[in-house]
Design a binder for these strands. Structure first.
Lengths: 208, 208
DNA sequence: GAAAAAGATTGAATGAATTCATTTTTCAAG
DNA sequence: CTTGAAAAATGAATTCATTCAATCTTTTTC
């Protein structure tokens, strides 16, 4: 028994996510009607609600997949980071940012972040928050690695600096998502400018 | 002519805000129905929509008043801050945080922040964003003042550090609002711990 | 101070998300 | 194979924010 039921379920789930993502990107979150998503996914409205608690849940599920990918790409960077502090931070953060608009529009990000703030107790919001925490941990880990390898002075509190870097890059991403006219390049430049003085200050020696 | 119309308008506006705030605090934002707010304020639903574009607008208006008060209190602190960097930052930030729950519940904050992210183009969201920018400017100004008075080393970029401090305290406030079990004390302690190492690093001399 | 214009108010109608009682499909035991 | 129970699917009904054409109030004009 391969489980007909399980197979159908997985298939329907995939169809719902695909339909929703496509309509969200196309028409925007608000304009995409649940009825249309259901129709496109070839399920009834009721079924859709058996799979997701509400409209926002579908979006947050998509975003969670995206963040998961970013985390994996981040792993590769922190495994072997550039030994210049500023460059290492910039490499990791630009990677986050560059990935962000591959599947999702700014509006989708805004909506997803808004939902995860407003209804933090729904299962998918919790998942999103947890992924955020893992991103933060990744930045902390980068600072620790650089410290262990001698690029950052030994006396500083790696966790504190990592958290501050992360909260800053996260807040700046929110601002980026809010302002339609702001480009990825501008975001990266501004964050780099904010981090540079701190990076310089905690560097043990200038890279050659 | 004292303007009968103007007087009636101001009165209705006040009644709407009072009714809404009371119901939002009492039952939560989602459970408070527009019809109930209108009834409590003794206006029709249609009138309510002449005063505010939508349900969220009413909430954001309340929050904007709150932030305005915080800004004013902040002015007094940055006019004459403690000359120890860590203490000065802590004083200003604790002031922000302590004020935050006087009129508003965590849920109200969450909803207001979510709205300002999701619909950044509505007039009141813009107003909220602008107030946020002024808070940020205030933190930058504090850093500049401390630098001018010799408490912070002259070579650092006051704007960059101020922005990073602000983005951190703001992000931490979002987290605080998301987690019902997190106390104001815990929030303040955690943020202080994040800022302490940076403050130490940019201090010119330890305060006597 | 009467008539016209401008400004406000109203609540029933609209439209979309969400619910839930009913029906249909899968599964497993005999 | 049947069959009864469990799981899924369904779509009509409900709920609530928002709109708008009609009505009422204030202000202005002459």
């Amino acid at each position: 028994m391969a489980g007909l039921r399980a197979k159908q379920k997985a298939d329907k789930n995939r169809r719902i996510l695909e339909a929703a993502t496509s309509l969200f990107r196309d028409q925007g979150y608000d304009s995409a009607r649940i009825e249309d998503i259901a129709e496109m996914a070839e399920v009834s409205v009721g079924t859709l609600y058996n799979y997701y608690q509400n409209k926002g849940d579908i979006l947050v599920a998509t975003v969670a997949m995206e963040v998961t990918e970013v985390l994996e790409a981040g792993e590769r960077i922190i495994a072997n980071p550039p030994l210049d502090v500023e460059e290492a931070l910039r490499t990791l953060i630009d990677q986050y940012y560059d990935h962000s608009l591959v599947y999702l529009s700014k509006e989708m990000w805004r909506t997803a972040m808004a939902i995860s703030i407003q209804q933090p107790e729904t299962p998918l919001s919790k998942r999103y928050t947890e992924l955020d925490e893992r991103l933060c941990a990744q930045v902390v880990q980068l600072v620790e690695t650089l410290q262990r390898r001698g690029a950052i002075i030994a006396s500083i509190d790696a966790r504190a600096f990592g958290e501050v870097f992360f909260n800053n890059l996260n807040m700046m991403f929110i601002e980026f998502a809010k302002v339609d006219g702001m480009s990825l390049e501008e975001l990266k430049t501004r964050v780099a400018a904010q981090h540079r003085p701190i990076a310089t200050m905690i560097s043990r020696v200038k890279a050659v």
